[in-house]
Structure formats: C-alpha cells, structure tokens
Write a protein that binds this DNA or RNA. Sequence first.
DNA 1: TGGTTGCATACGTAAATGGACATATATCCC
DNA 2: GGGATATATGTCCATTTACGTATGCAACCA
Lengths: 120, 120
Amino acid sequence: MDIYPFRHTLSVPDVFQLLAEPSRRRLLDALRDGERSVNDLVDRTHMSQPSVSKQLRILRVSGVVSLRSEGRHHLYSIRGRSLREASDWLSYYERFWREGLDRMDEVLQRGPRPRTRRKP
Amino acid sequence: MDIYPFRHTLSVPDVFQLLAEPSRRRLLDALRDGERSVNDLVDRTHMSQPSVSKQLRILRVSGVVSLRSEGRHHLYSIRGRSLREASDWLSYYERFWREGLDRMDEVLQRGPRPRTRRKP
DNA sequence: TGGTTGCATACGTAAATGGACATATATCCC
DNA sequence: GGGATATATGTCCATTTACGTATGCAACCA
C-alpha cells in the first residue's frame, strides 16, 4: 500500500470534524514539540497502537500531519496549513469575545429571572 | 419546560465537537450580523425548522448562543466566550503555519534527514 | 373563543465512526 | 534465515447523532 506524502480532504472533509475527536487533538498536542514516532505517540497519549495508527492516518490523508519514514520508524509531524482553515473561520467570531458583544450580560440584567450565577 | 438563560457543557462537552457539525456552523454564520429569530435562521440556512431548533438548543445549552424571548419570537445571538476556547487551542499551533515550520516542504525537497531524537 | 403563527420536542431510523482485538507487513538484528 | 520490533490494516461491535415527520404548546389576533 502506498503512503501519500500529502493529500487534501479524503474521507474526512472538514477540519473541525477532525478536531472534534479528543484522541486526535491529543495526538496533535503530543506533536507540538516536533516529529514523533508512532510508539512515542502511543506512550504520550495512552492510546492503543492501532488507535494511534488509525487516527494518524486520518490526520495524514487530511493533510494535518505529514509522515516521513526512517527505517521501520514512521515519524509524524504537524502540517499547520490545514489547521489554519479552522483558525480563519474562528477569526470571524473573535470580536464576539474581544469587543464584549456578548448579549447575555444584558439579558441577565433585565430578564424576568436574572441569575447571578457566574462561572465557578 | 423552562428555558435556561445560560449553562455550560451539558450533553456536548467540547467546542470542537459543536463546530464539527456544518449545520451548526451555518447557524453561527447566520448569526454573525446580530440576533435572529428562528424562522429567520430557517430561511438563511435552508434547514428545516425542527433541525434549526434542535441545533440551536445544543448551541444554547453549551453556551455558544444565548436566547432572548420577545413575545412568541425567540431571538438568538452569539456568545463568543465558548468559541474562544477553540481559538485558544488553535493558537498553540499558529506557529506551524506562521513560521513555516511545515516539515513537508523540506521532506519533499531534500528527502530524509538525520533524526533529532529528544526523548528516550 | 377559536384559529393561526412561531417554536420546541418526541420518536423512529439510518449513517458515521471510534475502539478492541486479531492479524498482516516491513525492517532490523543475530 | 529466523525472531523481534515497529507499524498498518481488517473486522466486528457499540455508540453517537443528525434528520424527517408528526405533534405539543404558547403567544397573538379577529
């Protein structure tokens, strides 16, 4: 079976769907310091090896990580470009927390039953 | 049936899982200009009314949108704070597309490199 | 008061998918 | 070659979940 060095959006079309899975985010977190082998990632994420391989494949065919082989070791690393799509989408909403456009405060103040409950 | 003005993470615990569903992102996109009624959102998103209500509820109990009632009209608007979590997570990866840390370019150009082992 | 509008929910169903487990494949070492 | 190591994949299963349809319910109005 061939190893695609790069490909966009095969089975999982969108970045947010990729990031929705906690196991995949854990893998990315474990890759933040640089490229890692599969067993490295197994240790760091406490996932089973087949799960790690499976999720890495999904990330790879989606273009979120890249793979480089060195002997029997497969070294994965992050390709930022795909993640940028998610960041760009979110940037449209940045003003909602930066400019205090949050309507809830007003609602809480003049609603029928104002709740003073705040975040713990 | 009471309407909670605000609540964190009920059935859908994480923001990325919320954003993974295209219909929910479409709703948020339709809310970018300000608060909207349900039928407004039905028209703008071309979703069925029950689907809109259902997804709005999910967004609401997760704290991503807020609800304000005006007669029989339910007006929804965006609460940015929850989305910020996603943005914060992504910010850790920003350098991967900003600083050109994308390893794939190097790999494609000059092949395998001596590994930089860091951990045991 | 009865009808209409605006919205929420219940229910059934089909599709997607993550994990465990077993196994296949490739590389390294003796 | 043969065994050990590193990784990938296939299969089965359980869970999640989104959608359509039908219905419930509250607010508005003639």
